[in-house]
Amino acid sequence: MPGSDSAVMERKPWVAEATKDARLEIKDLNVYFGEGADRFQAVKNVSVKVQQGGSFGIVGESGSGKSTVLRAVCGLVESWDGEIDIDGAPVSHKRDKAFARKIQMVFQDPYASLHPRHTVDRVLSEPLKLHGFDDVDGRVLRALDDVGLGADFRFRYPHQLSGGQRQRVAVARALMLEPEILLLDEPTSALDVSVQAEILNLFADLRKEHNLTYVMVTHDLAVVAHMCDEIAVMQHGEVVEVMDVEAMRSSTPETAYTQELLKASMGYDAEFFGDS
């Protein structure tokens, strides 16, 4: 595809352009862990922009800081500076209750993200009660229906569910407060391939139905290519490249690192990797 090259060129530099329809915008985000001599900068000067209704992917290997960006956005990490704007308004370090109705997150490991002693019913009704929603029963049943589980699952405990079913519950939980932005932190990497397909399809359906904006973090380029329109590649805490999905499909990324990543996710190639 000859045209995609220029598309990439146009996108650069990925410093924010002043557009109105950005749902989430991150400007010069730095995240630090530890104090004093142990202080470690996990994220360096990250700036990305996610369009309303868009699906933005962040790929990178472990330690690249990709998950940390998500955690700073949703408020689980407080030691950051820079700017995070939602619908044009900057968010503070301490988040209030109303913030919870804007952004929710789906975690990586469905075995660790559900409370082992709470039934599905409790997991789903808790956010509703916290925020004083009415019609709790109806909403719980509709949410179960939405994620393809049905009322049968309502009073089960997590240990009575399979990995895929647990992840569906986690997705339902994230949707209970009707957020506009969903942060997905490696949501399928702990699942089998066939289950991953079901969950990815579910994400696609929900995005259409609820008009959601996704930010997805993953190490799997195939998943990101399937799910996202725009992709940022991170390495050592920095964004090394932002490209759109066409550039990725046509294997025309700019940096050597991205090319290596792409090659690696296509499968083993003795000639390419053998003589390193």
Binding site: A197, A222, A225, H226, M248
Partner: peptide, 22 residues
């Protein structure tokens, strides 16, 4: 076949992934 079809692929985009019917 189901496993093969369930895999997302970079080079060939699909609108929907085929869910495996066990």
């Amino acid at each position: 076949r189901g496993l093969l079809n369930a895999l997302p692929r970079i080079e060939e985009p699909k609108g929907r992934l085929e869910a495996l019917q066990r």
